[in-house]
Structures are given as C-alpha cells and as structure tokens.
Amino acid sequence: MKHTVSVFLLLASFWLINSGYYKPLLLSFGLVSAIFVVYLTHRMDVVDHESHPLHLFNLKLPSYYLWLVGQLIVSNIDVVKRVWSGKGSISPCTAWLPLSQTSDIGRVIYANSITLTPGTVAMDLEDDRVYVHALSREGLDDLRAGEMDRRVSNLER
C-alpha cells in the first residue's frame, strides 16, 4: 500500500514538474493519467520494495550520495589523466569481489555505484560477489579495500 502511494506521488510530481500548465482541465488529465499508470503498473507487478525502496530513505542516504560525488570527482580526474597520458598509463585488470549486501536492491545500488565511478565497471552481479573490471590496478585495490561496499550495506540497516 505505501508503495502504491509513493508511486502515485512520484508520478504526480513528475507530471507537475513537466507540465507547467496548472489549469483544471490539464490537472484532471494528469490525475487520470497517474491513476491509469498506477493501475497498469500494478498489473505489471513492478510496484514493490525494489522499485520504491522506501526503507532505504533515511538520513544515511544523502551522506552516501555526497560521499559518492566525492569519489566521482576523484575517479574522473584519474581516468582523464590516463586518457591524456596514453596507453602506457593503464593496467586493466579484473576480479571477483565479495559483497555484503543482503537484498537485491542493495546489490544493485552497489553495482551501479561501481559502474558510475569511472575506472571501474561491474560486469556481473551474483548474490555474494561482483565481477569488476578496472582500468588500473590501483582502482581495483581501492574498491577491494571495501569502503563503498560497507557504506552501501550500511544503507540497508
């Protein structure tokens, strides 16, 4: 039920942001559309704790994203340096890394965070490990140290 409410609120705000015309006619079209989409997505069975991870919305989330933005800046600078200094500066490598998340949504956030930071890409995701390709050995070692993994797991609690 709370996921239905959340998807409806999300759709409603999406409409209001996009529309910009706040006349009764269009607002009622918006309402009808949102209700129709909620109905359809319920038939599709895509509204649940995975698509609307309300349980993850707490104070830790903003701090995680802030930390991630910091990582993004650092890794972007690193990769750009390697682009300009040529092939000699990269040492591509791969490894299976363990992960400690307990739910699929946590694993997905972890995998996407890995891919989002340039220099590392999650190539495969299983229940207890993730296969990572890194542009340089240092990048892989950073990830192996496990800070990102810890922080994502921390979100689940």
Binding site: G30, S33, V37, T41, V46, V108, A122
Partner: peptide
C-alpha cells in the same frame, strides 16, 4: 539480471506517464 530488473521497475511507470503527458 538484477540491475536491469530493478532499474526497469523504477523507470517503467515514469515512461508510461511521460507518454500520457
């Protein structure tokens, strides 16, 4: 394919609503 499944679930309602918009 966990990643595609979760992200797909998030996006599909928005795509449908965007169509109606």
């Amino acid at each position: 394919h966990k990643v595609l499944r979760v992200v797909g679930k998030m996006l599909i309602p928005l795509i449908l609503l965007f169509g109606l918009y």
